[in-house]
């Protein structure tokens, strides 16, 4: 049982940063960005490039990957999404799916589809009774926790964090009150991208690093963000924990092969039972097109 919770924590560490990033992008840029999985893949390859090619230590590679992914997301926003501001929701939604495939296949063009891994020292798991704790898991949960706590506290306490929350709450009013919303949008793109990049690093520690890695995470990440109440950062963390737990349960009691499908099932159940998400407000209809 403890082992199951521990494994779930490890899986949540991968999903949660990207889910918070997705939520942030949704709140500030105003649409569901389905390219979030591709951003995660960009992060994984950026980490691998620094770690595997240049021989940097993993922590430094992770930091670099966060910066690189943040800038990639900013560039994508400027190139693809900003010109569509004011366009109907479907245009942004579909463009983001198309972008996701462009990024994934640019990675494939650059790195080919072969499977890679980080250059990590082999370490023996720590054993407490019948609980096995791989040091990697401690590392990734630690890094994710520190990053997420920093982001959540920053949103609460820093003036820019407060401004982000205000703009997420009501963009029009934020502009009226003189908050620089365009700079906030750019900031949200970089921060959301950096968080997705961190997810990429952590995913690369657990999964094979290949261009399709991000797409496989798209549904769990978005499901986690929706489950927690879309637009709510703490909710996204909670959603990631729940999705991860459901994944571990499914892997244990059904079949590990269905792990990627759990996000969908959890989401479907959540939509049936609590459409406004766990921490969210009810969503008003009519954003369809």
């Amino acid at each position: 049982m403890m082992q199951l919770l521990l494994d779930a924590l490890g899986a949540a560490a991968v999903v949660a940063p990207a889910a918070v990033g997705f939520s942030l992008l949704f709140a500030l840029l105003g649409f569901a960005n389905f390219a979030v999985g591709a951003y995660v893949a960009v992060g994984a390859f950026a980490t691998w490039s620094a770690n595997g090619l240049l021989g940097w230590p993993l922590l430094a590679s992770a930091a670099l990957a966060a910066v690189v992914t943040g800038l990639v997301v900013l560039a994508c926003d400027a190139a693809v999404f900003r010109p569509l501001r004011g366009a109907p929701g479907w245009a942004l939604l579909i463009s983001s799916v198309a972008l996701s495939f462009v990024l994934e296949n640019l990675l494939r063009l650059a790195f080919r589809g072969e499977v890679r891994g980080f250059d990590l020292p082999l370490a023996r798991p720590l054993v407490f009774g019948d609980l096995r704790v791989p040091p990697d898991l401690l590392w990734s949960v630690g890094v994710a926790a520190i990053a997420l706590v920093a982001v959540l506290l920053g949103l609460r306490l820093l003036p820019w964090g407060r401004a982000l929350r205000a703009a997420a709450d009501d963009m029009a009013l934020a502009a009226v009150r003189g908050i620089p919303v365009d700079r906030l949008r750019a900031g949200a793109a970089v921060l959301g991208g950096a968080l997705a990049g961190l997810s990429g690093t952590l995913a690369g520690m657990n999964l094979a690093i290949e261009p399709g890695l991000g797409w496989a995470l798209t549904v769990p990440v978005i499901a986690a963000a929706i489950l927690g109440g879309i637009g709510s950062a703490p909710g996204a963390v909670l959603g990631a924990l729940l999705i991860a737990l459901a994944e571990e349960l499914a892997a244990r009691f059904l079949s590990p092969a269905y792990r990627p499908g759990v996000g969908f099932v959890a989401l479907a159940l959540a939509l049936l039972l609590r459409p406004q998400g766990l921490l969210g407000r009810p969503v008003a209809g009519g954003r369809d097109r």
């Binding site: 929350r165 009013l173 009150r177």
Partner: peptide, 20 residues
């Protein structure tokens, strides 16, 4: 109607409005 940031506290609403 939409003239306050509903999810922010009163203190935060005032602080944020002093941005400029």
């Amino acid at each position: 109607r939409r003239n306050v940031f509903r999810s922010l506290s009163v203190a935060e609403n005032l602080a944020i409005s002093a941005w400029p």
